[in-house]
Design a protein around this nucleic acid. Structure first.
Length: 819
RNA sequence: GCCGAGGUGGCGGAAUAGGCAGACGCGCCGGUCUCAAAAACCGGUGGGGGUAACUCCAUGCGGGUUCGAUUCCCGCCCUCGGCACCA
């Protein structure tokens, strides 16, 4: 049998016609399995890097179908987003047209790879029948006081007069015009994800089948810390500054306080200062620097003295108050107590501005003589010094004692703090779901009534660089009447973050055409949680956290009965080319079309799965692809050999046949284990390759009967079916089977063939291999020892060094130790 | 900077409740077939030394635990992902 493109098309049509991947969610005759791949953003064509996600998902789905599950594999499009709008500006094409064209193109690609879905469940987030429900979620959150508006900074390019995404800010400058980017505050909408911080953290333990690293990242992102909020009284003013710290044991070493540029007390502190001008200027400067954590290091640590002092409440010492650029606004209290001796950033800052550095924690291993200066901040734990009555305590006990002391004296209170911040969902952009809020002069902010949804995104818009959403210029959109007083009113013109769209799409797949509700609770409850979620590790935090949040919100409303949406998560690695991520700009993209054309879908699929462990990055090599093509031809040749095969005369199973059947059944066992484990397609495929190699070797011996040979081939194609579905189907029908190979069931192994009587073990002297021998599995350690010590080479090594001890690892090694 | 992951032949990668390092594939070398090439098939292939038997070295670097470490511990170096408006 030869490989040709017609085989691909034939079976793709067959799967479509027989509705192999279409699911009726009401059908409960088989156990369900919900296999979900992260839906694509339709930016342009897919390359082989993208393909990995869908090929893995398809292989999992097919494997589960063979195992007898009723498998739901839906697909959709994360269709709102910034790139569409950029294209619109650049090439004068409407975002909708651009997006829908891309979707059509990608659909063709997926089909040509034999990646199958239940297309009747396709959802597209930019279509009104989808975003209607995204808006509905907003209203639900609003009603439950989990959506609110407050001022928040955006990146602002003063020359383009537009809000920039972080991605569009290159080293503090606008990517288009290279103008210095500023911070601007706008009133924006937030979802109160912090309300769920504790549950998002606690429920991580329910996610037993998630990668540990993803759970750890989420845990660190939530960033729960317990500490103390201390109030530092101001000198001359009857106010105080609140600082949160997790290291209250270092409080005696707090020698200054640093505020963020927009701390509410700044104005009060500097209003009488002779240097007011200078300080305001400095604050302005920091304001222009970017607030994002990752950009902090691009600026040197800087600060300015406000001229005011506070008291350290523990030792009553006067400590200066600074404004510093390394304190984030809107983070904690926006003020920190600075302990230069025990914090590296504070240490640098203190050195720069000549502030005192008071050591209060002494490292257990520290052997500096008294009076010797610290050369760098010591951030570890230790014994308290210079801390009054708390001297001599360990950091750990001191934290408790000082916190208790502070609570008694009313100078501080124990507090739990989270790094997690509320989710800013406002975007000053066109291509997103409009936020369903109306502003009325009389009634204030009024939610759009549910019955009026969707708030349609108008299609005729201009993309003027004005800094507002283009929607603000569409009068028929923005001008409206107040749902409450029927007076004149205007709509919110910001749209929602696309992460809102993607935070619930996996629910919509269950009832995608439902017009009355967002999803059918009963069906969703029977099909979710998702059994297997597959996607890139780059989504480990944001998308997965937002989805978990929205799911918990639905849980609280009684709309779903499961606390977590994704039971098992698999994060696949990237496919690299020349060591880096494929991208058009780098020109290192491998387009799949020519591969499909030249070698067929199964070659590409097989190579993508064989390239390396799927949870890690791997380097694309064209030669590797060729190797897989060669393998496919080699497997198919077995069918031709079988056709012509002259049967050897029937007899009992001969040793060569037993050898081949042993290999076959151990391969079934190992491939199954690889797939059931962590989707180790690469090793599963290599084991099938070994079996194929063994088959050729066994055939050469001339002892294999035709029926044994046919059995082995049949199993080879069954094992390959999830990876190379087209040729497995073709081979399956060539072998005389009717119907789809995917309805035949996954092969099981016969344990009789896996029993071994003899094994080869290595004999080691002092840890080095010095001989090998075959042993019978029922030999005692003593018998093995006698045999091992009798080996000639071993004897040589033991001549002058008699054995002292021996170790035997069953079926593996026998180690003789002379030392 | 913070958080997370990873460093094994010429290359992609196997092997970890600590037990024969380099499965499988690529590449390369030699051979068969061919006028020749391609394809296919067979054999070899971590590095050094040795005609060979064999031997020494080797899993990013430096230490440690152990009869035994790619695997566990401590300290470094490098690469990649995320850092809240790319999705």
């Amino acid at each position: 049998m030869n490989y040709n493109k017609e085989i691909d098309k034939k079976w793709q049509r067959y799967w479509d016609k027989t509705r192999l991947f279409n699911v009726d969610v009401k059908d409960k005759t088989k156990p369900k399995y919900y296999c979900l791949v992260m839906f694509p953003y339709p930016s342009s064509e897919l390359h082989v890097g993208h393909a990995r996600n869908y090929v893995i998902g398809d292989a999992v789905a097919r494997y589960k179908i063979m195992q007898g599950f009723y498998v739901l594999t839906p697909i959709g499009w994360d269709a709102f987003g910034l790139p569409a709008e950029n294209q619109a500006i650049k090439h004068d094409i409407h975002p909708k047209i651009w997006t829908l064209n891309n979707i059509e193109r990608i659909k063709q690609q997926l089909n040509s790879w034999g990646v199958c879905y239940d297309w009747e469940r396709e959802v597209t987030t930019c279509q009104p029948d989808y975003y209607k429900w995204t808006q509905w979620i907003f209203l639900k959150l609003y009603k439950n006081k989990l959506a609110y508006r407050k001022e928040a900074p955006v990146n602002w390019c003063p020359s383009c007069k537009t809000v920039l995404a972080n991605e569009q800010v290159i080293q503090g400058k606008c990517e288009r015009c290279s103008q210095e980017v500023e911070q601007k505050k706008l009133k924006q909408w937030f979802f109160k994800i912090t309300h769920y911080a504790e549950r998002l953290l606690d429920d991580l333990v329910l996610l037993e089948q998630w990668p540990e690293k993803v759970k750890l990242m989420q845990k660190n992102w939530i960033g729960k810390s317990t500490g103390v909020q201390i109030s530092f009284p101001l000198k001359d003013v009857s106010q105080e500054i609140l600082c949160f710290t997790t290291r209250v044991d270092t409080v005696f070493g707090a020698t200054f306080i640093a505020l963020s540029w927009d701390h509410p007390l700044v104005e009060e502190l500097i209003k009488t200062s002779p240097k007011k001008e200078e300080i305001s200027k400095f604050a302005e400067k920091i304001k222009k620097q970017l607030s994002s954590l990752r950009l902090l290091d691009e600026f040197e640590k800087e600060g300015i003295f406000t001229g005011k002092f506070a008291f350290n409440p523990m030792n009553k010492k006067e400590i200066p108050i600074f404004i510093a650029n390394y304190i984030l606004s809107g983070y904690g209290t926006g003020a920190i107590m600075c302990v230069p001796a025990h914090d590296a950033r504070d240490f640098d800052f203190a050195k720069k501005y000549g502030l005192s550095i008071v050591e209060v924690i002494r490292d257990y291993r520290d052997n500096r003589s008294a009076g010797q200066q610290l050369e760098e901040a010591y951030e570890g734990e230790g014994i308290l010094v210079n801390s009054g009555e708390f001297n001599g305590l360990t950091s750990e006990t001191a934290r408790e004692k000082i916190a208790d002391f502070m609570e008694q004296k009313n100078i501080g209170e124990k507090k739990v703090n989270y790094k997690l911040r509320d989710w800013l969902i406002s975007r000053q952009r066109y291509w997103g779901a409009p936020i369903p809020i109306i502003y009325c002069e009389n009634c204030g902010e009024v939610p759009v009534p549910e019955n009026d949804l969707p708030v349609l995104l108008p299609e005729a818009v201009e993309f003027l660089p004005t800094g507002q959403s283009p929607l603000a210029y569409v009068d028929e959109f923005s001008k409206t009447t107040c749902p409450r007083c029927k007076g004149e009113a205007s709509r919110e013109t910001d749209t929602m973050d696309t992460f809102v769209d993607s935070s619930w799409y996996y629910l919509r797949y269950i009832s995608p055409r439902q017009g009355k509700v967002s999803f059918e609770t009963e069906d969703v409850n029977s099909w979710l949680p998702v059994d297997q979620y597959i996607g890139g590790v780059e989504h480990a935090i944001l998308h997965l956290m937002y989805s978990r949040f929205i799911n918990k919100f639905f849980y609280d409303l009684g709309l779903v009965n499961f606390k977590e949406p994704f039971r098992r998560l698999f994060t696949q690695g990237m496919i690299l080319k020349d060591g880096s991520k494929m991208s058009k700009s780098k020109g290192n993209v491998i387009p799949p079309d020519y591969i499909i054309d030249k070698y067929g879908a199964d070659t590409m699929r097989l190579y993508i799965l064989f390239i390396g462990p799927p949870n890690r990055d791997a380097e694309w090599q064209d030669e590797g692809l060729l190797g897989c093509f060669r393998f496919i031809k080699r497997v198919l040749r077995l069918l031709d050999i079988l056709k012509e095969y002259k049967d050897v005369k029937p007899d009992r199973l001969n040793p060569e046949e037993i050898k081949l059947l042993k290999k076959t059944h151990s391969t079934i066992k190992e491939v199954t284990r690889d797939l059931d484990g962590n989707f180790q397609f690469n090793t599963a495929i290599s084991k099938i390759m070994e079996l194929v190699n063994q088959t050729y070797k066994s055939l050469e011996s001339g002892d294999i009967r035709k029926d044994v040979f046919a059995q082995v081939i049949d199993i080879i194609f069954l094992l390959l079916a999830p990876f190379t579905p087209h040729l497995s189907e073709e081979a399956n029908s060539n072998l005389g089977n009717t119907g789809s190979i995917f309805n035949r069931g996954w092969p099981s192994y016969n344990p009789e063939y896996l029993k071994e009587e003899e094994v080869k073990i290595a004999v080691l002297v002092d840890g080095k291999v010095r001989g090998r021998m075959s042993i019978s599995v029922n030999w005692s350690k003593e018998k093995i020892e006698t045999k091992a010590l009798a080996l000639e080479r071993v004897k040589g090594y033991l001549k002058n060094n008699p054995p002292q001890k021996t170790f035997y690892v069953e079926g593996k090694v026998f180690n003789i130790v002379t030392k």
